[in-house]
Design a protein around this nucleic acid. Structure first.
Length: 155
DNA sequence: AACCTATGCACCT
DNA sequence: AGGTGCATAGGTT
């Protein structure tokens, strides 16, 4: 089931399989024709996102299911250990997993569930690093803004 | 086995 | 400080 959520940073596509959220991704293509049907998971996700973007999101209790390789799962698990207002570098995560910075970046790039699994909290040793496969442009602006929302939450 | 990196770092202005 | 180049390591297919 596919729904759209219009966040202050742009439209998000929410995919669920009726028991878990399986995708939450930025979706800039026109989607006005999409009608959001009522479903419990979408309602929960919307509420959580409303809270997040209004500065009062708690830790996530949404059920989500991530499909990926073992390594990707390990990297995504690390993301969930980073609380709002904190960041780790690709190199630091790599060290924890006995891997390399670039490999970690690769797993971040294919994170299927943005924000909820906070890939934006992993940054480069120098600078902000990439986001959604991009190293400049609107996606990086979004990463910057998510980090500043995080700052608000950590207060 | 080849093909990529959302890196890091050294070495420059 | 900020930019460029490239060596490397590991993951993915």
């Amino acid at each position: 089931m596919i729904n759209f959520y219009h966040s202050p940073l742009g439209p998000l596509k929410i995919v669920n399989d009726n028991s878990h959220i399986v995708g939450l991704t930025w979706c800039d293509e026109p989607n006005d024709h999409i009608v959001n049907d009522d479903n419990e998971l979408f309602a929960q996700a919307s509420k959580w996102l409303d809270d997040y973007f209004s500065g009062k999101a708690a830790k996530t209790d949404l059920p989500f299911k991530l499909k990926g390789t073992d390594f990707q799962r390990r990297v995504w698990a690390q993301m969930l250990t980073i609380s709002a207002g904190e960041t780790l570098t690709y190199g630091e995560v790599a060290q924890r997993l006995n891997s390399s910075a670039r490999a970690v970046g690769g797993a971040c790039r294919v994170n299927p569930v943005v924000i909820l699994v906070p890939c934006h909290r992993i940054i480069a040793a120098t600078g902000i690093g990439g986001y959604a496969g991009k190293i400049a442009g609107v996606m990086i602006d979004r990463k910057t803004q998510l980090l500043s929302y995080d700052q608000g939450l950590s207060h």
